[in-house]
């Protein structure tokens, strides 16, 4: 797992041969950092300044770009994104941990087919289900509600989370479970009182993975939601761009607002964040 553990190295002086590499690193650093800096800088400029003096710092910081962006609709998208993301995380963790418990603590033969059923879901590309899901959600009258995002997001995040949490549950010693049984705990009680509290780290990992997905998902968000009232940030930004047309200041400020939660979370909780983000590929 990722760790910032300091390795026990002797300090090498920067030798001459490393200079070209350092230059490459710095160039790449600039390629990444400058556009990010440009967004921050431009979010405080007037539209004309953004277009004409693209390299210049804002003459007078236009803080009202942020309040304008918030007022023109970002606030609604932001709240929708929070509602959808939090509900999805909650649903995924509860359902996945229940499923993981079922798949790791019982010795029943048919459960291995359930496991295959779940693992198959890992491979499925959500786009394949787009058209039928659209029809299904319409038929269930769920399209254009929060559920139209929460349900598909939860479903498509389930397999990964079940497998992650299951791996963790499998590592919990049998004795702990057995002593709980001796104390008269039912399975549900064992799950709720022992397994769930013990698995906080893996739950956080799952929560981060799910949050990242739900906060940024785009395709379902533009197709399953018609109304401005329920749009999440990624889709909302598109509507925001169309609505503002040439009013770039607030648009760029809106882009900053949209990015801030995850970037800040990453900067302040790098370790957990990276553990979460890499778990998706390494599988525990």
């Amino acid at each position: 797992m990722y760790g910032v553990k300091p390795r026990n190295h002797r300090r090498d002086a920067l030798s001459l041969s490393q200079v070209p590499i350092l230059i490459i690193l710095l160039v790449y650093f600039a390629i990444i950092a400058y556009p990010l800096f440009w967004i921050l800088m431009s979010s405080l400029k007037t539209t004309e300044d953004i277009s004409v003096n693209i390299w210049a710092l804002p003459k007078v910081p236009q803080w009202h770009n942020y309040t304008d962006a918030w007022r023109f609709g970002i606030s609604g998208y932001f709240i929708n994104s929070i509602i959808v993301t939090v509900s999805t995380i909650f649903a995924v963790l509860v359902i996945a941990s229940l499923g993981a418990y079922g798949l790791s603590r019982f010795k029943v033969s048919w459960l291995k087919y359930v496991l295959i059923f779940v693992m198959g879901g890992m491979m499925l590309n959500p786009q394949v289900c787009l058209i039928p899901l659209y029809k299904l959600l319409t038929a269930l009258k769920l399209r254009n509600t929060y559920w139209a995002l929460i349900i598909p997001y939860t479903t498509f995040r389930l397999p990964l989370n079940i497998l992650l949490i299951r791996t963790f549950f499998l590592s919990i010693p049998k004795e702990i479970e057995e002593s709980a049984k001796l104390d008269g705990c039912t399975n549900l009680q064992t799950y709720a009182r022992i397994f769930v509290p013990m698995s906080t780290p893996i739950m956080i990992t799952g929560a981060i993975l799910t949050a990242y997905y739900a906060w940024n998902e785009f395709m379902f968000a533009i197709i399953f939601i018609d109304s401005n009232k329920y749009r999440t940030i990624p889709a909302g930004l598109m509507a925001f761009r169309d609505a503002l047309q040439i009013n770039w200041g607030p648009l760029i400020a809106g882009m900053v607002i949209a990015s801030l939660p995850l970037v800040l979370f990453f900067l302040f909780a790098q370790k957990q964040f990276i553990r979460g983000m890499t778990a998706g590929s390494v599988k525990g």
Partner: peptide, 20 residues
């Protein structure tokens, strides 16, 4: 409620065909 041009074309046709 409102959506922009191209999306409107699509949305209104969907809405008109539904009970919505």
């Amino acid at each position: 409620d409102s959506v922009v041009n191209d999306s409107y074309k699509e949305k209104i046709r969907v809405l008109v065909s539904s009970d919505d």
